[in-house]
Structures are given as C-alpha cells and as structure tokens.
Design a protein around this nucleic acid. Structure first.
Length: 446
DNA sequence: GCGATCAGCT
DNA sequence: CACAGCTGATCGC
C-alpha cells in the first residue's frame, strides 16, 4: 500500500496519486492507476472544487485508467478535467499557479508499469532534473533497458530521483515466478478440473478489483471460454479484456465473480453468483486463490501451485515486482537519490530506503554493461502471425484500435541476451532459491 | 452528526 | 501469507 505523500522534492507543484491536504495546492495532478490506495482524496469535494476553481489545472492519466475511473459514478464529475496522455510519447506541459500566475514547463512521459490495466510510471524532465515515479509496477528483469525514453543517444539518461514501488523489497521475496509461469500453472490446474465435466467449475478468488485481467485473457484463449464476472461492462472501453468476460454464469466453467453482500455467503451457494447447473448434476467447485508466494521462504521454484485443501488451491501471482526485479530496475536506472513509495511487509519505509541505497551501490558496477535494446518487434510480429493462423484472438500487447498497449510487459517479450551480468544475477537467484527452499522444506515438511 | 482511523475479514 | 478493499466500530471534534 502506497505511503507516497503525493509530491516529489524536485517538482513540489505536482501531485501524484494523492489528492488531499497540501496536495490541493498543486498545479497539476497525476494518477498512475485506478487502485484505491492511489486515489486518496480523488472523490472528495475539496479536490473537485480545486479543479473547478481553476482554468488550467488538470488530472493526467493513461486512456485506460480514465476509462476505468469513469465507470464509477463518484468520479464522473472529474471527467471535464481529465487529460489522457499517450504511453511512450513525451508531452510538453506548461503548468500554472493561478494564484501568482507563475508558470513552469516540463516534459512528461508515461511508461507502462505492468501492474494492472492502465498502470503507468511517470517520467518528468525539466529544470529540476529528470525524475521517475514508478507508481506500482511489475516489470521482469531486463525491462528498464527496453524503455526508449529512459535513454538518450543510446545511453541511459541521468536520473536525479527515483520514487519506486518497494512492496516486495524484502529478502523473502527475492524471487517470484513470472506472470507466464504462474499463468501456465493456473491453466494446468483449471484444465485438470473442468475437463471432468461441464458441472465442474473453477472459482477464482480474486481480491483486488483490477490486476487479474491477464489471467482472464489467457484462460479465455486457452479454453475458448469466457470468465464470469459481476460486471464486465467496466471494461467496455478495453476490448482485449471485455471480449474475455461474460455476465452469464451458465455460459462458462470459469468464475471470477464476487460476493456483493458481506454475510450472505452460505454453504448453500458455493459460487458468489449462485449458479446451479441443470439437474441431475450437482456443482463441483474448485477454488483457486491467486496470491503472492514468497519463493525463498515457502516453496521451491517449481512449486507455483499450493494445495490448501481438497478443493482449494493457491496459485502464485503477483502484480508487484520481486526483490530481484526491483534490484535490477534501480540498478539500471541508477538515480542520484532514491525514495521508497511503500513500506514492505514487516519493514519500515526507512528500512526500505536503506535497502534501496545498498542496492543502487552494489548493482551500479554491473548495469553499465547493459545497453538499450528495444522490444523485439520482429519476434512479436512473428508471434502475432502464428496466432492469426491458429485463429486465436490477438495477444494483449498488440493493443486495440482505441488504445496503445499498456496492459502488461511479459518476460517473453523481452529481447534475449540482455547482459551477462543479468544472467549471472539470475542464476545466482535460482541457486539461492533452491538452497533456501530445500532448507525450508527440511524444516517444514509438507 | 461528520470525517478520520482502525480492526477484522475476505 | 502478505498484490486491495470493504464494513462496521471507535475516536475526536
């Protein structure tokens, strides 16, 4: 959960992901994604009147974030003040203090953050230096080298400050399996259950409102079966997701619907949507809870699925970067100063910042070996062509007609041969994981 | 009576 | 076990 107060020390007149208190004095506002903990004050009367009282003050976000935001009625009044920015497209902004008439020009670029649909990082460039605010992010090792706008003349830009998501900056979360590996494990688990018969259904026990869409898309593609959710219409403006969802519980064996009333989950209804198959069949439900397993603490690398009880499994899934991914990212960006946005579980913000500083120092020497490599466009085109031949829907990262691609960065998209130092680093991680998990299994036999 | 904060639950 | 968010209780004004 974000602890970021809203303002960066370099550009005090901007507020990001906080819209209360002193932030109301800012000249421009930025929203990285549509999770509640980044929207504090966004629906308050104070923020709305702040926008209304000014001619030029705007709320900037990605197109998808705007679309998701406006599906909730409490944010509808913000619509006239929202300005969307295109990902990977530097935009020149002139922000104004309407009290004094003072102006400030700067360049802002949205970089995809891979956290949830619409999530972005903000890169600001201006007289106070280049600063990067990551919001929440899940980026595979090697991602930083692939952001064009983190580079200039083939070299990484000098970053004055980095404000970074440190949710999993704890030694226990050194390694978290990739999105693809977690998804493959989920697909295999789902396959083993729903293939038993049409009355065998899977319930995906999803906590957050946004962030699991990648799983929905991949399940839909693999099983040619839409995922049942309470309200698909919130994704109306994001076709890649919308087309994978249904509001009809009888149409699918995969459910991600949620209970609306708190105390109404009785034994009588194994599914939140209360769907019952036609007689004589009785519903057979397997619950699957996507959750972040800490691989250095709880499991071996192959242990992406964990059986909780006969009909309940946990599948590893994370929409925040692991310790290793954070280390890789900050080691590549090499900011002059670094700030933690999140107090990791069991740590304070200060401890996270101390850890970050240690990391930037220790990784710096290696990262100079890495040079900018764009996303492997040829590989992507080939993959898209292959899929087209197979009659599958387009992959998410090709984007829709309406929006540029900002859903997820996947490990398999990254160009191969990033750098010797990173490969070395990875194998080191795997070795550590193996050792620690063996140690762990000795202590806690399953 | 209101918002802010917290405990508890999912 | 850990990713977000709701609800209801409690506190201070």
């Amino acid at each position: 959960m974000s602890c970021f107060g809203g303002r960066m020390s370099e550009y005090r007149f901007l507020s990001i992901d906080r819209f209360d208190g002193e932030n109301l004095e800012s000249w421009a506002f930025f929203l990285s994604h549509a999770h509640r903990d980044h929207m504090v004050g966004l629906d308050s009367p104070g923020f709305l009147s702040r926008l209304k009282s000014s001619l030029k003050t705007r709320l900037y976000c990605s197109e998808i974030t705007k679309a998701l935001l406006l599906t909730e009625k409490q944010f509808k009044p913000l619509e006239p003040f929202i300005e969307t920015l295109t990902v990977d497209t530097p935009t020149s902004l002139t922000v104004t203090d309407e009290v004094t008439g003072k102006e400030h020009s700067l360049l802002v670029t949205l970089l995809q953050a891979g956290h949830c649909p619409g999530s972005v990082m903000f890169l600001f460039e201006g007289t106070e230096g280049t600063v990067l605010y990551t919001g929440d992010f899940r980026l595979p090792v090697g991602s930083a080298a692939q952001f064009l706008h983190l580079h200039q003349g083939g070299r990484p830009k000098d970053i004055q400050s980095l404000y970074v998501d440190t949710t999993f900056l704890v030694p226990e979360a050194k390694y978290i399996p990739s999105r693809e590996d977690c998804c493959t494990a989920l697909i295999n688990l789902v396959q083993s259950w729903i293939s038993r018969g049409s009355h065998y259904v899977v319930r995906l026990n999803c906590k957050a409102k946004y962030g699991y869409e990648y799983l929905f898309i991949e399940l839909c593609r693999r099983f040619h079966m839409k995922v049942h959710v309470n309200d698909p219409s919130i994704y109306q403006e994001v076709p890649e997701i919308f087309q994978c969802l249904t509001s009809d519980p009888s149409e699918t064996q995969i459910h991600a619907c949620r209970w609306l009333e708190r105390y109404q989950k009785g034994r009588h209804h194994p599914l939140p949507c209360k769907y019952r198959p036609p007689p004589p069949h009785e519903l057979e439900v397997m619950s699957v809870t996507p959750s972040t397993m800490w691989f250095t603490a709880y499991a071996g690398p192959g242990d992406v699925v964990r059986k909780i009880s006969r009909h309940h499994h946990r599948v590893c899934f994370s929409f925040h970067s692991s310790y290793t991914e954070i280390r890789d990212f900050v080691g590549y960006v090499r900011p002059k100063t670094i700030h933690a946005n999140v107090a990791p579980v069991g740590s304070t913000l200060q401890e996270a910042e101390d850890r970050l500083r240690d990391l930037t120092r220790s990784v710096q020497a290696d990262s100079s070996l890495v040079s900018y490599k764009p996303l492997g466009s040829l590989r992507l085109q080939r993959a898209a062509l292959k899929r087209k031949k197979q009659g599958d829907p387009s992959p998410v990262w090709t984007g829709s007609k309406r929006f540029e691609p900002v859903l997820y960065i996947l490990e398999q998209q990254l160009v191969t041969g990033i750098s010797a130092s990173i490969h070395h680093d990875q194998s080191e991680v795997f070795r550590t994981v193996r050792e620690q998990s063996m140690h762990c299994m000795q202590r806690r036999p399953r």
